[in-house]
Design a protein around this nucleic acid. Structure first.
Length: 505
RNA sequence: GGUUUCGUGGCCGAGUGGCUAGGCAGCGGUCUGCAAAACCGUCCACAGCGGUUCGACUCCGCUCGAAACCUCCA
């Protein structure tokens, strides 16, 4: 089966066939977090979106290098008039070294991303560790004539750049509008044009984060790190650059301009942007003060949360929407996701039991070559496998993929051991389908079974066997006593035709 | 004001020029010692107004509404 993957390229605003620059290899750069605050739901979206892309590219057989940066210098606080470095501000408040703050929040970020089963990228470079590369890039842009030096700061000359190239091609902005929209140039502004942006900024005396440079002590402009680090680790032309839609302008637009100016050509083939998570229809973000941290989600400690939500619920919630759509947060929606995920996972467990119930010995090779096996499966199963691939190949449409997986759930739940209608091969193909799409690609895992281990499983087998005996003698008192006691331990017993099943909470 | 995008049923959320999205909730059944689960069936839709078309939720235009980014700043 041949997989033709189509990716929506923000640059062309169409879905394009993914053809890697170097066959069999894929390079991907994604804008990571600025580590000055606890990770919130807004951080989870791009992390999970591009984790999905990473996983799927790997699944398709590409050798992927996935680079996601840690921004630990340079950003300025938007709502502070002084325009201080975000990390520097926080450092003064908490009386810590700036790098101590960055380290703390980077660790927090990794911790919560691990909880969400987000795979670690191949490389996670830090801006602070690439000051030299950034300085070299500024020098290249200066040499090329697209930047100018003022009082120890270097600015990118957007107007000059626009005479040859198209500044605005990614975000659809028109330079004349950008220029004409800003008549109120203040006297102290060093920039020639309002649209210009800093490549290197001179550090003010109170500025803690600073590095020496050919232009004096300062720090890099915030668009620069991504250009410098993507070039360093992925080369001057690479496949995918991703990030949130909020970064489209000016960040990514400026990255394009920087690379064009420094390298002489564009560096990115496919631009991908995930949409925002909204809360009451409004973007969830640090600067808006309406964000909910991941820790608050996992513990349920936020006024607007009715309960705690476990990491897989949040992952599933995010994957139920297409990555280019806004996703509106609400307790109702999350609870629906929680139930849906539970249904999916329990169906998977049921499938495994169905396979256990069969006395056939599956060929160990069948797991690796399951797509060949799928060709021989019943038509509806075979079609299901195809549909799952089709939905992923259509710009990673996880919403559709999940709807197909629920078709698999229906098939599995309708199957009975006593009156089997599926071939044993079908069951094995379904198992591989779950393994591939639910576990490997969507990255969903059954937290309960992982946590509990074999001990609990064995104990439950025993308890349920004893209860079954009491039920056979119609000793409902004992039967219900066991069930009620287990329920108090958050273990639900479900009696079916083929014995009793159980699950934790 | 500019740029980009969106407006789908009780909630979330896909998609398409004519054919079922899916999940959650509701309703009616089946099963069951009871409960839960599961299965079957079912209700609720495409912001408004025009246009193109044999036919539009799907294309075009306008109106209304919403969001992100920009408009001060790196």
């Amino acid at each position: 089966m041949e997989n033709l993957l189509f990716i929506y390229n923000t640059l062309s605003r169409t879905k394009e066939l993914f053809e890697p620059i170097n066959p069999k290899f894929a390079g991907m750069y994604v804008c990571g977090p600025t580590v000055y605050g606890d990770p919130h739901l807004g951080h989870a979206r791009p992390a999970i979106t591009f984790d999905l892309v990473f996983r799927y590219l790997v699944h398709l057989g590409y050798k992927v290098r996935y680079v996601r940066n840690i921004t630990d210098v340079g950003h300025l606080v938007a709502d502070l008039d002084e325009g201080e470095d975000k990390i520097a501000v926080k450092a003064r408040v908490e009386q810590l070294e700036p790098m101590e703050v960055a380290q703390y929040y980077a660790d927090r970020y990794f911790y919560y991303m691990d909880k969400l089963n987000v795979k670690r990228p191949s490389i996670e470079p830090r801006a602070s560790g690439h000051i030299i590369e950034q300085i070299l890039m500024v020098e290249k842009i200066l040499e090329a004539g697209y930047a100018y030096l003022v009082n120890g700061s270097v600015y990118f000359d957007v107007e000059k750049y626009s005479k040859t190239y198209d500044y605005g091609k990614l975000s659809g902005r028109v330079l004349d509008d950008l220029l004409s929209n800003t008549r109120s140039l203040e006297g102290q502004d060093e920039k020639r044009n309002s649209a210009d942006f800093a490549l290197w900024k001179k550090a003010q005396p109170e500025h803690i984060m600073r590095w020496p440079s050919p232009w004096g002590e300062g720090f890099p402009g915030w668009h620069l790190e991504c250009s410098a680090m993507s070039t360093k680790y992925l080369g001057e032309y690479f496949d995918i650059h991703g990030g949130g839609m909020d970064l489209l302008f000016p960040h990514h637009e400026s990255e394009i301009a920087q690379c064009q100016a420094a390298i002489g050509h564009e560096s990115v083939k496919y631009w991908m942007h995930n949409n925002m998570i909204t809360i009451n229809g409004q973007k969830m973000g640090k600067s808006l003060g309406n964000f909910i941290t991941l820790d608050q989600f996992f513990t349920g400690t936020h006024p607007s949360l009715q309960q705690a939500y476990n990491p897989m619920t949040i992952r599933f919630f995010i994957l139920q929407a297409h990555y280019r759509s806004t996703l509106d947060f609400s307790n109702e929606a999350l609870q629906a996701a929680e139930k849906g995920l539970k249904k999916l996972m329990e169906s998977h467990n049921r499938l495994l039991k169905l396979i256990d119930g069969h006395s056939f010995e599956p060929d160990p090779k069948s797991k690796e070559n399951w797509l060949d096996e799928a060709e021989k499966a019943s038509p509806n199963i075979k079609e299901l496998v195809n549909l799952c691939y089709q939905s992923m190949n259509d710009d990673f449409n996880t919403a559709i993929l999940i709807s197909h997986l629920f078709e698999a759930v229906r098939i599995i739940n309708s199957e009975s051991i006593e009156k089997p209608s599926l071939k044993s091969l079908d069951l094995l193909v379904l198992r591989s389908l779950f393994q591939t799409f639910v576990s490997d690609i969507l990255g969903l895992k059954d937290e309960k079974s992982n946590d509990q281990g074999e001990l609990l499983d064995g104990l439950m087998q025993l308890v349920l066997a004893i209860r079954q005996k009491s039920r056979e003698t119609k000793d409902w008192g004992t039967s219900d006593q066991i069930r009620d006691a287990l329920q108090k331990l958050k273990i639900t017993v479900k009696d079916g035709k083929e014995g009793s099943a159980w699950n934790v909470e």
